[in-house]
Amino acid sequence: MKTSPFATDQDVRWCPGCGDYAILANMLKVLPTLGIARENLVFISGIGCASRFPYYVNTYGFHTIHGRAPAIATGLKLTRPELSVWVVTGDGDGLSIGANHLIHLLRRNLDIKILLFNNQIYGLTKGQYSPTSAQGIVTKTSPQGSVERPLNATALALTAGATFVARCFDIDGAGLQNIIKAAAKHRGSAFIEILQNCNVFNDKTFVHLSDRQVRADRTLWLTAGEPMLYGKDKNKGLMLQNNKFSELTVAAPQDVKKLLVHQPELPDPHLALHLSQLDWPDYPVAMGILRQVDLPTYEDLIAQRAQQTRDDHPPKDLTSLLKAGTSWIVK
């Protein structure tokens, strides 16, 4: 990794074998291809294992406080809309303590990219269940198994109105790189949930989905304009019948016509939301870009309002500005 032009001289301090390494490596590979000058890239993070990320990328970087990266990124983007601003967060940082900011950033559609490393555990504080942990998980704070139902990060982003929503595994290098590139091109909030392995406190949480032996059968990689086909032999597909997904084994070529075609650009987020909630073993888990629509960004709308104000009421000199309203003269 140190060979990337975007690597820093800092020692990477994640546990050996942590999924974060793969994410960083893929990011370092993609960054030089984006056509964005190093000085115009800013990585902002909160607190948690994932949030160490900015120290390892040779761009501008700000490692802030727990959960607040989206709010800080919002202020930066409002001030410097020309910058490419990336938020790196985790399931505790982004979905628990900072969930409010995340929702509102997505709702406003600021042109900010969010990478949420979801390892379904609090790693940096040494292993407590997180808002995405599976129900029943045994951790230091849930010795008899957690009673909480997990939050679906991708579904939350869709509900919040995010204009770009994707999901990927830490170990799916090609998939991750494609998603990062697409997110970088997208104008608006881009949310990427990265299912990441914490090999110390929650090892193999995703292995039942991500393992190469089973991944093709248990996940569905969504490609825009393509029918929803999956399986090792690409012989299984998803249909929508009576508002319910059903699986179809593709026996003949004409069966493919019965399948859903992925349309991430649909203005209505319903189908994407529905897809985001599919779970194995009933259904394959949807991966890739679930939604990508064009809507005006918050900062553009704010700039328009400012321009409108300038046109309607051009600024005055300081003296007249202070005098505004009723003033009087004492001789």
């Binding site: 802030t64 919002t74 202020g75 930066l76 983007k77 409002l78 001030t79 410097r80």
Partner: peptide
Amino acid sequence: CAAIGAAYG
């Protein structure tokens, strides 16, 4: 925090 982000900018 937004103000801090703006100051950073």
